[in-house]
Design a binder for these strands. Structure first.
Lengths: 296, 296
DNA sequence: TAAAAATACTCCATAGGTATTTTAT
DNA sequence: ATAAAATACCTATGGAGTATTTTTA
């Protein structure tokens, strides 16, 4: 059976007249009759009741008409969708991100995409550290990662979106919170809260470097896995922390953010994907992300 | 475009190899390559990435594969369903019924159909009087009616399913309710509750005839539209009523049913449909109903 | 008897086959 | 060097056209 049979049947069912249907299909009446008969023979079901005066649908024909129309519409839609996918106007992108991307970059991107590319759906795979994202990207589990360079993996295409300074988070009640700007070395005797050191966290290393630059090594390092936990711990008065500036957008009662002097260390946020041409939706998302974040 | 293109594409996508796909399709490799290229040209989208070493799907191809498989399955299903409909194993039947069919005939039929013909769905159009059902059947609003003969409409095919005596309903507290069997003439001075007389209700006429046979005319006739209302009114002590025996299955606290002597008047329950051959599901439902109800 | 579907046949477009070339690893 | 897809060309199936017959309201 072929789509031709469905197309012909639908028109005959609509016109209830072989002659008119044939005219609409730009073919002669006899071949139309033949094709319909062939369809009925193949299905083993009579779809039409014909007399020379009128053509009617059988109950089976009635149902088959609905189905046939649905199939033809689906074929059409499939073609259109394929074009959309090839242009990057439709598709699915699995995204991984570091904790600090959660609070500004992702929401802004999701909003922009919903507005400009509504055919693209995002699958947010959740907070993942840079090396885990690199692995997932290579495996194909992830299409796009928002991570913190450096990435030691040449097969990945990495584009830096922005560079941000580190800022301090400290309890609102803390005496140092009264100042609007802090010198990093003022924090030298505070207990620190940070990301796990055994996983290779870029921010963790940046924090150590910054402290080194300010002439001290942070003591009493409490380690937490997620950014929201980290800020909550600070709010609870368990210590202070250094985080990338964009974490500011995570407002938690009892925690105060303050700019820092005394270190030039910055951290970069980058988008990474597997090199290779055929991911149009992914390209579009990446383009949109670059436009959004490298612009300012 | 034709289903052939979809079928070929699906196999190539599965095999990721034109040669093997061609073998599975029992055609040679060159025409297969041609058909796939034609498909891509018609869609305006590249679906496959071919090198001489391997065939891969593009993102658009990936999506098109899913859609194509769905379409092919739908075409298959449409054919099967058409056969089912033609055999009466699938379909839809709109059913009308009189109040007194609601409490025994319909539930039993619905149960039997669910078990034996699960492909058939019933659309229960609700309680309708016999003449309204006849009109609806002729209009095509209804496929099958459970009604009380006579039906004065020759285009309808009517089959009597059962004949039942009239029984009395009276308030449980009523002195006559103490007897297990009533003589109809004992009810001569009671207020009666019955179906509307202005609509041509068969039961209404049967009640009048029965009373006539017992030598009286019921006085103080309170009219209600639905059987459940009627029995509730009786339960509330507003009067007595005569109803077909099967209404017994409608148990309402405060109402008692009692067999009657003193009249031979019975009422029939029949199934009615528009004569004409092509309603297989309807035929099957009717057959099932006859087997269920004329058997006992 | 007239309108419309079915039948009989003819033709040609194109799906499919065969032989060969091109290409990428 | 080789496996596999693409190209070139040929064949033949079957879709579509024309002429005619059959059917039924």
């Amino acid at each position: 059976m072929e789509l031709r049979h469905l197309r012909y049947f639908v028109v005959v069912a609509q016109e209830r007249h072989f002659g008119r249907a044939a005219a609409r299909l730009h073919i002669a009446q006899p071949p139309l009759s033949q094709q319909i008969r062939r369809l009925e023979a193949e299905l083993g079901v009579q779809l039409l009741l014909r007399t020379t005066r009128r053509v009617e649908l059988t109950a089976a024909g009635e149902r088959y008409l609905e189905r046939a129309q649905a199939v033809l519409a689906a074929v059409e839609a499939a073609g259109n969708e394929a074009v959309m996918v090839s242009l990057g106007d439709a598709g699915h992108v699995a995204i991984g991100f570091t904790g600090s991307a959660t609070y500004e970059v992702l929401p802004a991107l999701a909003r922009a995409l919903r507005r400009d590319l509504p055919g693209i759906t995002l699958d947010l795979k959740g907070e993942m550290l840079t090396p885990d994202q690199a692995t997932a990207l290579l495996e194909g589990t992830l299409d796009l990662g928002f991570l913190r360079p450096p990435v030691r993996e040449s097969r990945l295409e990495v584009r830096v979106l922005r560079s941000e300074p580190l800022i301090a988070v400290l309890p609102e009640q803390h005496p140092l919170a009264r100042r609007s700007v802090l010198r990093l070395k003022d924090l030298r005797d505070e207990p620190f809260i940070g990301y796990p050191s055994h996983r290779r966290s870029t921010v963790h290393e940046a924090v150590l470097e910054a402290c080194d630059q300010a002439g001290f090594v942070p003591g009493e390092l409490q380690e937490v896995a997620e950014t929201s936990t980290l800020v909550s711990f600070v709010a609870a008065g368990l210590g202070v922390a250094l985080v990338p500036e964009s974490v500011r957008h995570l407002q938690i009662t009892g925690a105060a953010y303050r700019p820092l002097t005394g270190t030039t260390r910055r951290v970069e946020l980058a988008a990474a994907m597997l090199a290779g041409p055929d991911r149009p939706a992914l390209r579009r998302v990446l383009e949109r992300a670059e436009a959004l974040f490298t612009g300012d």
